[in-house]
Amino acid sequence: MTRQRLLPVLLFAGVIILALIPLGLDPRGYEMRILCITLLFASLGQAWNIVGGLANQISLGHAAYFGIGAYTSTILLKLFSLSPWLGGVIGMILAVAFALLLSLPTARLKGHYYALATLAAGEAIRVIANSWADVTGGPVGISVPYLPDGSLWMMQFSTVLPNYYLFLAALVVICLVFWKIKSGALGYRLRAIKENEQAAEVIGVDTYRSKLIAACVSAAITAFLGTLYAQFQFFFDPDTVFGVATISVKMALIAILGGVGRLSGPLVGAAFIIPMEEMANSYFGSSAAGLSQFAYGAILVLVILLNPHGLTALFAQLRDRFTGKGGSHDRSVA
């Protein structure tokens, strides 16, 4: 039980530390950008965790929501100078609409079939974004109009420091949403679906509705993160924001590698994967571009072989080995 009292304290301390880190760094520097991207991907992993972790619906199409969010707010900003906060909300609505549409053919699918169907849907949206050049700008990409006098309302700043705090705030909010869902009635229902869908139905769980709610919440969050990303990067193209490897698989990978279904999973996963990827790029990037991806892949395989339950489980085992406790009981916690 001490663990349960300890957890909020640890999380609070973690947020304070994350809030203090930038004070020692160059606000325009490379490290700040990596930290921002790490926070963003921790949030994305957590959004994916609602569907992939709690209900075990392995989506490989979440880039669709991310790209819808990024393009919607950016196009509205370009055309009508609409604040990205409002554009982001409209992006969330569109993403939810797409999630509802996608649920019609996919909600009854399980396992590999669900993964493949969502993968295909995500790719379809990428192809549409590439070909619908009148609206999206097509493969050449789209630039967020730069406003010299940046403001919070227009989500534009002269350094990335405010972006960092925005990403941190988003991560805290999304973690709270995840925790609320996981520990609430919906969390029970999703866990029941994950562990035995037929039994869940027979004892009264509306499995279709529960999965749909989870998918919509996850889609809306992912879309808003797309808006935050657009306002941070200022330029993107369909292959980046709708990409399978760049977004969809990476979201899943971060949650799975960190510890799927756990609150701490995507946090650990992002803190591991994003800096590692950046380091691999900077070490091998100039000499042999392919090598960075190879090193990245090799490390992933190694971690998964070491512990299929993810890094958080690996840490728990190591801790238990040092403190001499039995390991398996911690599996259900956080």
């Binding site: 029941a192 562990e195 039994a199 259900s332």
Partner: peptide, 13 residues
């Protein structure tokens, strides 16, 4: 049963 869940959580569901 929901094998990964506790007895109580099974019944709560």
């Amino acid at each position: 049963l929901f094998m990964e869940s506790s007895v109580l959580d099974n019944v709560v569901t």
